[in-house]
């Protein structure tokens, strides 16, 4: 289900709660090159709103999509060109 993007890196923050999913996503995206895609796996339901809000308010990142399934929230974030 995640094969629709060419994922460069996967960040597993399952178990972690606010603010760690956002904070770790930011650190992980910093390590990527422009155009690369980060997959974030979280169990914190707040991460749906938080990562969307973070991506919206942060220059240079694009939220491709968010999915929920089997208790895991998947976020796909691309570092902008």
């Amino acid at each position: 289900m995640s094969s629709k993007y060419d994922i460069t890196e996967t960040l597993d923050v399952k178990g972690a709660s606010c603010p760690m999913p956002v904070v770790k996503t930011k650190s992980a995206i910093d390590d990527l090159a422009a155009g690369e895609v980060l997959e974030v796996l979280a169990t914190d339901s707040g991460s749906m709103s938080d990562i969307a809000g973070w991506a919206d308010g942060t220059a240079g990142v694009e939220l491709l999509s968010q999915e929920e399934g089997d208790g895991v929230y998947r976020h796909y974030v691309r570092k902008a060109e």
Partner: peptide, 11 residues
């Protein structure tokens, strides 16, 4: 601490 680290993530 939560607000500080989150704001830092926002740049």
């Amino acid at each position: 601490l939560i607000l500080a680290s989150t704001a830092a993530a926002f740049g």
